[in-house]
């Protein structure tokens, strides 16, 4: 199996503070990993580290989404492939999008039931619509892997299932931080629990119950 990323007894800080300690981790290509744990446990820092160390071109959904509010949904999703196009083509699509590009982006948005908002400015959308726009950008990204921080936190449960299914269909390797334990177990085959800056749990997801994760959420 090809390995996606390996961390060996790493101590990782963020803004000068030690957030994660003694992290050893190996994730292979094709794995579906869910990161669980309390907020503030260090999940976001771990995701950021994984993104920075991986060598493949992976798609990323950061917690604050990183959308450009002054641009349309089309442009924000198109940005998933910005690095593949020439600057001239990007400039042209910024001013007047090509029909082919519009169609390709609309196809992605249809899967997320956001096709009606193709021309809307992201700043005018609801929180859930903005999150789906960020997912759209990740789906449009050509990479086979996705690293995402709470990708479905702002949508209802029904949509969450839809979105996670689409993510699984289009990405081989997924590393998703999720606070919803049921979703985490259902859409992963490996659970990694983070507690107090350390990896407290690393087990296959099959057969797990949400209550099995209680330890992660109790303060010592």
């Amino acid at each position: 199996m090809t390995e996606f990323i390996t961390l060996n007894d790493e101590t990782i800080g963020y803004l000068g503070k030690v957030v994660l300690q003694g992290i050893s981790l190996k994730i292979n290509v094709g794995e579906r990993v869910a990161l669980v744990g309390e907020s503030g446990a260090g999940k976001s820092t771990l995701l950021r580290t994984i993104y920075e160390r991986q060598n493949a071109e992976s798609a990323l959904i950061p917690q604050d989404l990183g959308l450009v509010h002054a641009l349309s949904v089309f442009h924000n999703v198109y940005m998933g492939r910005l690095h593949l196009r020439s600057v001239w083509r990007n400039l042209r699509n910024l001013l007047r999008p090509a029909t082919a590009e519009l169609k390709a982006v609309r196809d992605v948005l249809t899967r997320l039931r956001l096709e009606d908002e193709l021309r809307s400015l992201v700043g005018e959308l609801s929180g859930g619509q903005q999150q789906r726009t960020a997912v759209g950008r990740a789906l449009y990204h050509p990479g086979d892997a996705l690293i995402a921080d709470e990708p479905v936190s702002a949508v209802d449960e029904h949509q969450a299932h839809d979105i996670l299914r689409h993510i699984q269909e289009s990405k081989d390797t997924t590393i998703l931080a999720m606070h919803d334990r049921a979703l985490a177990i259902r859409y992963s085959d490996r659970l990694i629990g983070v507690k107090d800056g350390r990896i407290a749990l690393d087990e296959p997801a099959a057969g797990m119950q949400p209550s099995d994760l209680d330890d992660l959420y109790q303060t010592a």
Binding site: R48, Y51, E52, A59, L60, P62, D64, L65, G66, V68, H69, A70, L71, H75, M79, L82, H83, V87, N90, L91, L94
Partner: peptide
């Protein structure tokens, strides 16, 4: 400005991330 860590670079960054944010 806080940009996402996977933001584009060079002219693409200028066109798609920075200019739309400062246009107004």
């Amino acid at each position: 400005m806080n940009l996402r860590i996977d933001a584009a670079r060079g002219i693409n960054l200028y066109l798609y991330e920075i200019v739309p944010r400062i246009y107004r």
